[in-house]
């Protein structure tokens, strides 16, 4: 029973990390039709800025340092995403395949620059001392950092939902996901929504980058790889353009993957792909996705 609980909560924690990557991917795809392969590099940029802040700027690794690293990592990744959108992607609007291709190029270049500067070895990210504590639920001892990932993901989900529901730009984004041509035809500046979505997606990925480096005990240009692919899977299963769908799918995938991996190492990835195939066959628009006409 304790192992069951431990694996379940670790799975939800992992799902939270997937959600941080997938939420941005989902909104960017839903609004702009861009398959963003550069999203992994947003995550890596966030992770390196977080590392820089917590090892070079601050010399004590307490809670505030970590929060600072998350915020700075998120902001840096968000700004980087904004630059990518303004400088590169905005020149290729309505050329969806070319947009996807150019983001592949950006991911390659960012990976090469970071590998050239810092090498591909894992660098340790200083974390607050309480990260190694455990919480006892019944007889299960659960590492406390899992709850941090879940908490951050929930905060970002709520903030995201609030922004989409109650602000004007959120209204434009939601309308744009439904029907972008109509929004543009009504004379509303959709481009501002594009930039916003890229910034928000980059911010979430950057925060995710710092958390991923805490989870995998270090930072390297290669950490984003599997998270990007899982992000894609989450987006497809959850439904394109649906942030709550991404959240639900991320949690399901994280939990299933952990249980399967406990049963037999490596089985997790396999089960997740089967799940993906099943969802595509039975419900191609994803769990909470809408069918686009």
């Amino acid at each position: 029973m304790d192992t069951f609980l431990l694996i379940g909560i670790t799975g939800i924690g992992l799902g939270a990390l997937y959600f941080l990557v997938a939420s941005g991917l989902s909104l960017i795809y839903g609004l702009m039709g861009v398959l963003n392969f550069a999203h992994g590099s947003f995550l890596t940029v966030g992770a390196f800025v977080g590392l820089w802040f917590s090892s070079q700027v601050m010399h004590v690794s307490n809670t505030w340092t970590f929060i600072g690293a998350m915020v700075l990592g998120g902001l840096a990744a968000g700004l980087f995403a904004l630059l990518v959108e303004r400088i590169v992607i905005s020149r290729l609007y309505e050329r969806h395949i070319d947009q996807a291709l150019v983001t592949v190029g950006i991911a390659l270049v960012v990976g090469a620059v970071l590998a050239g500067w810092f090498g591909n070895d894992l660098r340790l990210l200083p974390t607050p001392a309480w990260f190694i504590n455990t919480v006892s639920i019944g007889s299960a001892h659960i590492p406390v950092d899992r709850f941090l990932y879940i908490g951050v993901a929930i905060i970002l989900l709520l903030a995201n939902t609030a922004l989409l529901r109650f602000s004007r730009i959120g209204l434009v984004i939601r309308a744009g996901v439904e029907n972008r041509q109509m929004v543009a035809a009504l004379g509303i500046n959709v481009r501002l929504a594009f930039s916003t979505v890229f910034f928000l997606g980059g911010f979430a990925a950057g925060v995710g980058g710092v958390l991923v480096s805490a989870y995998s005990n270090g930072v390297s240009p290669l950490i984003a790889g599997s998270y990007l692919i899982y992000g894609f899977i989450v987006v497809v299963i959850g439904g394109m353009g649906s942030v709550p769908g991404s959240f639900l799918a991320a949690m399901i995938i994280g939990v299933i993957k952990q249980y399967a991996n406990y049963y037999s190492p490596g089985l997790g990835d396999f089960v997740v792909v089967f799940l993906l195939a099943g969802v595509l066959l039975l419900r191609p628009q994803g769990l909470l996705g809408k069918v686009k006409s």
Binding site: D98, V102, I106, L108, V109, G111, A112, V113, A115, G116
Partner: peptide, 20 residues
């Protein structure tokens, strides 16, 4: 020199240039 020593740096830049 760091980025230049990574083959994907030059190939990636070239790729972006060609696509755009």
């Amino acid at each position: 020199s760091g980025p230049l020593s990574e083959p994907t740096f030059i190939l990636g830049l070239l790729f972006i240039f060609v696509v755009m």
